[in-house]
Design a protein around this nucleic acid. Structure first.
Length: 259
DNA sequence: ATGGCAAATTGAATTTGA
């Protein structure tokens, strides 16, 4: 079974890319973040025509928004309104006793100080809630994926030294993400199963005219699994080539193959 | 280390991303 996670940066603007990727890879399960569309305006027919008939949505107007779409029969599990906000940052499903959670963790704004930046405070609170949830959860037959907006390891950013005080790579959020990882315990599949040269990222800013030139990217997108599933994950891949397509998302897809 | 771009909303300028 093939699972895909991709921050698509507006699903309606990216349908041609999605179709291209489906033709290339035909994943069984599609997890998207930043769909940026309300549920009643979601392009359901597009996915039905491609054979994906089970569509589970948590979208809001303009921003955020996540969904999980499957070929085989699946059921929605739940939508959690983390930090008491109904802001399209989570959805989970059940498929063949497998639990899949798709997250869009808050980016956190610019200033890495929760006292004068409400967005960063929100990000840290979100992580605290995830840690508590993970402690209480059974954490078996479970996959967590999505845009976590944190690049936890030194090699997950183009310059550890220069980004140490930049939101997404600050010690406090990395500490919380690692705490979450340990409470599962969850397996960071990209870290454990992909040979990572020092620069292997899932996001590059639009602001660089040529993202490849300086390769100033970050590994913000993740696939984690519960311990019992680790041996069943056969391959983990970051599909960097989509970043070269015309009018791309600033994130690229991550794909895993689960036996 | 910021912000050169991009998308959505509203109606040319603003907000958001990271």
């Amino acid at each position: 079974m093939k699972l895909l996670s991709w921050n698509i940066n507006s699903i309606r603007s990216r349908l041609s890319h999605i179709e291209k990727l489906i033709v290339e890879e035909s994943p069984d399960i599609l997890c998207f973040q930043e769909t940026k569309v309300e549920n009643d305006k979601f392009p359901k027919k597009f996915f039905c025509k491609l054979g994906y008939k089970f569509i589970h949505l948590n979208g809001i107007k303009s921003y955020n928004g996540v969904c999980i779409i499957t070929k085989q029969k699946s059921e929605i599990d739940k939508i959690v309104n983390w930090c008491d906000l109904n802001d399209g940052r989570h959805i989970s499903i059940k498929i063949n006793k497998l639990n899949i959670h798709n997250f869009y963790i808050p980016a956190g704004g610019d200033e890495p100080n929760p006292k004068n930046n409400k967005k960063f405070e929100h990000k840290l609170n979100f992580l605290d809630e995830l840690i508590n949830w993970s402690k209480q959860n059974k954490n078996n037959k479970t996959i967590l994926c999505g845009d976590f907006n944190i690049a936890p390891n030194e090699n997950d950013v183009w310059s550890h030294k220069q980004l140490i005080n930049t939101v997404s790579h600050t010690p406090i959020e990395i500490k919380k993400l690692n705490e979450l990882l340990n409470t599962g315990p969850w397996i960071d599949l990209i870290k454990e199963k992909v040979f990572l040269p020092s620069n292997l990222f899932t996001w590059w800013s639009y602001r660089s005219p040529d993202y490849k030139k300086n390769n100033r990217g970050r590994r913000l997108d993740h696939f984690w699994c519960s311990l019992d599933l680790e041996s069943k994950v056969k391959t983990v891949r970051i599909l960097q080539h989509t970043r070269d397509w015309k009018k791309p998302s600033d994130h690229v897809p991550v794909l895993i193959n689960l036996k």
